[in-house]
Amino acid sequence: MTHKTPHIITEGGVQYHLGEFRNNEIQYDFEKMLIYLDAKGKLLFGEKFKIHREDRPILYRLCSYFIKDQKRCEKFGIDVDKGILLSGPVGCGKTSLMKLLRYIVPHQRPYEMVPCRNITFSFNHLGYKTIEEFGNTSFFCFDDLGVEPPGRFYGKDCNVMGEVLLSRYDLYLNTKRKIKTHATTNLNARELEERYGNRVRSRMRELFNLVAFDKQSKDKRV
């Protein structure tokens, strides 16, 4: 596979065509993308993985974002320069989808999935260099934002993820919007504001597109 054919992906000896190359651009096909995501999901997470019918609308939005379909994204109120904040109830599949979706765009710079609790644990052990490490120009998806334990280093409390997000917001402003930050969360907007404060919450609005599962989404882990 070359970057000239990023819509053709080979997994386990099978070639998946996510669309066609026409008029000097890739015309993606959502149904073909779902076939690939289902196959890749089974490779990553096991044979029990499946794309649930009720998740198709949210997947359509996310796929439109990742392939940078400007027209569809505008229709959904999504800014392709911002990251994704994927929210929803526990067990609805947020983490799996964010781990999976990066594979449909192999020509784009990948992001690393990092649990927020690991960042806080690192801070508690190493201190403020952890905030520098994650407030850099790498691409990250911060998993389970808002439920990480408190940060404390040498007797001083720190809202670690709040500081990381502020650092990444500054980078986002000063690098012509090239820095991508994604996150998953079980919390709603009010709960996030309670957790991080109004200043961080307002920065999050500029960093992220909010894409939300239905509050009634079932727990797929049971």
Rank of each mutant, 00 (worst) to 15 (best):
N136V: 13
L173W: 06
D214V: 02
G135E: 07
V114A: 11
Y16M: 03
M98Y: 06
E112K: 11
R199E: 00
F121A: 15
S64K: 04
Y103H: 15
N159T: 08
M33F: 03
I119W: 11
L145M: 13
R177I: 15
N209I: 00
Y65C: 03
M33P: 06
F153S: 10
M98Q: 01
R109F: 09
R22G: 05
L165H: 00
T175H: 11
E74N: 09
R53F: 09
Y36F: 11
N23A: 09
E206A: 06
K220L: 15
E132L: 09
G162A: 05
G13Y: 00
Q108K: 10
R72I: 07
T185W: 00
E47S: 08
E133M: 14
R22I: 10
E191Y: 03
D214P: 00
V160Y: 10
F121E: 14
G155A: 08
L85A: 02
T130V: 12
V90F: 08
L97D: 01
L100T: 07
D144C: 13
M1D: 14
K40V: 03
D69Q: 15
N174E: 13
E25G: 04
L43Y: 11
D143Y: 06
L171E: 08
M161H: 05
A212G: 05
Y16E: 03
D69W: 13
N118R: 09
L187T: 10
P149M: 14
I35F: 06
K178C: 12
I131C: 07
G12S: 03
N198T: 09
L207G: 05
T137M: 07
L97N: 05
D69I: 06
T181I: 05
F153Y: 12
K42T: 12
L85E: 00
Q27D: 06
C158D: 08
F213W: 02
L173T: 13
